[in-house]
Measured scan of single mutants.
Amino acid sequence: TYTFKVDNKDQAKKAAKWAKKLGLSFQIEKHGDTFKITVQ
C-alpha cells in the first residue's frame, strides 16, 4: 500500500490516472486543501 498527499485536484487526477494505468485500486480522500491518495 502506497500513500501520498497532493495539494490540488489536478495532481489527484494525475495520480488516479497513473493508478488506473497500472491496474491498481485507489482511494482519494479530501482533507481541506489537500488530497490523500491510497494506492494498493
Rank of each mutant, 00 (worst) to 15 (best):
A15F: 15
A16Q: 09
Y2K: 05
K36Q: 14
V6L: 10
I37M: 04
W18H: 04
Q27R: 13
Q11A: 14
G32N: 07
Q11C: 14
K17W: 10
A16T: 07
T3E: 09
I28E: 02
D10I: 12
Y2I: 10
Q27G: 04
K13P: 01
G32Q: 06
Y2Q: 04
S25D: 09
K36D: 06
E29G: 03
T1N: 08
F4H: 02
D7S: 14
K17Y: 09
Q11G: 07
K5G: 06
D33A: 08
K17G: 06
K14P: 00
E29Y: 06
L22K: 13
K5H: 15
H31V: 15
K36N: 09
K13W: 10
K20W: 08
A12I: 06
G23R: 04
L24E: 01
A15D: 00
L22V: 06
K14Y: 08
T34R: 11
V39K: 00
F26V: 13
F26T: 04
W18Q: 04
G23L: 03
T1D: 06
D10N: 13
K13M: 12
K20V: 07
S25R: 10
K13N: 09
T38H: 06
K14H: 08
K13F: 08
K13A: 10
W18E: 03
H31N: 11
K30G: 05
F35N: 01
K9A: 13
F26P: 02
W18S: 03
I37L: 04
K9F: 14
K14E: 07
T38N: 03
N8W: 02
S25G: 07
T3I: 12
K14L: 09
D10V: 12
T3K: 04
K20N: 08
A19N: 01
A12K: 03
A15T: 06
K21A: 09
K13G: 05
L22A: 09
A16S: 07
T34Q: 14
T34V: 14
N8P: 02
A19M: 13
V6Y: 07
Y2S: 03
A12R: 03
N8Y: 04
L22R: 13
T1I: 13
F4C: 15
E29D: 06
A16W: 11
A12F: 04
F4K: 02
E29N: 06
K14S: 07
F26R: 00
H31E: 15
Q27N: 09
A16K: 12
A15L: 14
I28P: 00
A15V: 15
K20L: 09
Q27Y: 13
F35M: 04
K21F: 06
I37D: 00
Q40D: 07
A19V: 04
N8L: 03
F4I: 06
A19K: 00
K20R: 10
I28D: 00
I37T: 00
K5D: 11
T38F: 05
K14M: 09
K21P: 00
T34E: 12
Y2P: 02
K17C: 10
W18R: 05
H31G: 03
G32L: 05
V39R: 00
T3R: 04
K21S: 12
D10E: 14
K36H: 14
K14D: 05
F4M: 03
I37A: 02
L24K: 04
I28N: 01
K36T: 15
Q27P: 00
D7H: 13
N8D: 07
